[in-house]
Lab assay of single mutants.
Amino acid sequence: VTTYKLVINGKTLKGETTTKAVDAETAEKAFKQYANDNGVDGVWTYDDATKTFTVTEMV
Rank of each mutant, 00 (worst) to 15 (best):
T54I: 06
K51N: 07
F31M: 03
A35Q: 02
L6M: 05
V7C: 06
D48N: 08
V22I: 14
L13N: 08
T3N: 08
K32V: 08
T45I: 09
D47R: 03
T56C: 06
V55F: 03
M58F: 14
I8M: 09
K29P: 02
G15V: 15
K14P: 06
L13A: 08
L13R: 08
E16P: 04
T2L: 14
V59N: 12
D41K: 14
Q33I: 14
F53Q: 00
T12F: 14
V22M: 10
T2R: 08
V59A: 12
W44C: 02
A21S: 06
V7E: 04
Y4P: 01
F31L: 05
T50A: 08
K51Q: 10
E57F: 07
D23R: 04
M58H: 13
D23P: 01
Q33F: 05
T2N: 12
V59I: 11
T54H: 06
K5D: 02
T12W: 12
V43G: 04
G15K: 13
I8W: 08
L13V: 13
K14A: 07
V55R: 00
G39W: 05
Y34K: 03
Y34Q: 03
E57V: 07
I8Q: 02
N38P: 01
T19E: 05
T17M: 13
W44I: 02
F53D: 00
Q33M: 11
T45D: 08
G15L: 13
L13M: 13
T52C: 05
A35R: 01
A24G: 04
E57Y: 07
A49H: 11
M58D: 13
D37V: 13
N38S: 08
T2I: 13
K20A: 15
V43F: 11
G42P: 01
T3Q: 09
F31E: 00
A27L: 00
D23H: 05
T2E: 12
N36Y: 14
V1A: 12
A35P: 01
E25A: 13
T56V: 08
E25K: 14
E16A: 09
T52N: 02
T50E: 07
V1Y: 10
W44G: 00
D23M: 04
V43P: 03
K11R: 15
K51A: 06
V7F: 08
K29G: 05
T3F: 07
G42W: 05
D41Q: 12
N36W: 14
D47K: 03
A21K: 03
T50K: 07
G42R: 01
I8E: 01
T3P: 04
L6R: 00
T19Q: 07
Y46D: 00
N38Y: 11
G15M: 15
G15W: 14
T2Y: 15
Y46C: 01
D23F: 04
Y46E: 00
E16W: 14
